[in-house]
Design a protein around this nucleic acid. Sequence first.
DNA 1: GTCCTAGTTTTGACTAAGTCAAAAGAAGCG
DNA 2: CGCTTCTTTTGACTTAGTCAAAACTAGGAC
Lengths: 152, 152
Amino acid sequence: MPATTTPDPRGLLREAGLRVTEPRVAVVTALADNPHSGADAIYAQVAAHMPTTSRQAIYNVLSDITSAGIARRIEPAGQPGLYELRVGDNHHHIVCQRCGAVTDVDCVTGHAPCLTPNTTNGFDLVEAEVTFWGVCTACKAATVPNSSIVPV
Amino acid sequence: MPATTTPDPRGLLREAGLRVTEPRVAVVTALADNPHSGADAIYAQVAAHMPTTSRQAIYNVLSDITSAGIARRIEPAGQPGLYELRVGDNHHHIVCQRCGAVTDVDCVTGHAPCLTPNTTNGFDLVEAEVTFWGVCTACKAATVPNSSIVPV
DNA sequence: GTCCTAGTTTTGACTAAGTCAAAAGAAGCG
DNA sequence: CGCTTCTTTTGACTTAGTCAAAACTAGGAC
């Protein structure tokens, strides 16, 4: 009953020039079902179906598919690295300061860098990464309203 | 020779309602001299003058002055937490993808959130954090031009 | 000036997240 | 069907940071 929204993991891998193996298919599928997951969450999900999987394999696969351009790694302050399959559209994220929930936000301009600073201090600018911080619906509704994980 | 740009560490601490102790003064001074330093770099700098200092003391002080509002913690992806004394002006950062160097960029609007997404997915928006990624002058000039620490 | 007490610092063990490297195992070409 | 190269496993290790209890000290009270 997991309504696999996956656009064919095997195809994705093959197109990226990566060998199609069980762990890789499992990781891509897990990411398609649960975007913005960390290595550990993915490991848990994959290990449920494939108990022989090692945590190291997950790290390997994530790093492989990230450098192959299938996945992207984001790292909001105070959280371990999270991965998502949505790549190349230069979108951004809203992160909940209380529970860490992450959702996507479309980029206004649609191409990188979507913003430019008024002075670059001599840097060659490649990309602007925008992270919106706020409080998600669930946390707004929660009973104890004052316990942020990220001090403002 | 260290042209202490410090606006009186003792005053800063006292105004924030914190006890003025040697480790705290040393950490604030170190941060004033070297903004965007990590806990370890600060520890090295402080320990040079105060060899009895413990790494834990540095973590305590950093966390104290951060929650007192004297310092701010930033955490660019792939790097440990960095601290700076410049607070309350909602500025942003440019980070070098090769060497990790960080410099400040003034915020265009000057107040938080300086940007708003076109959909908040139900989140209450608090702040927009912008990180510009690029290549610093030194790395542009470096001999080996292709070894980023952050894959694009 | 001296004492007291809450707030600080030290010490040292511990956790989380991730990396490194060598050996065992499989994908897919010929 | 076998070979070669790429993957995965195993397990030790590193880095960044947290937790908790004991020792110490800044600064107000006397």
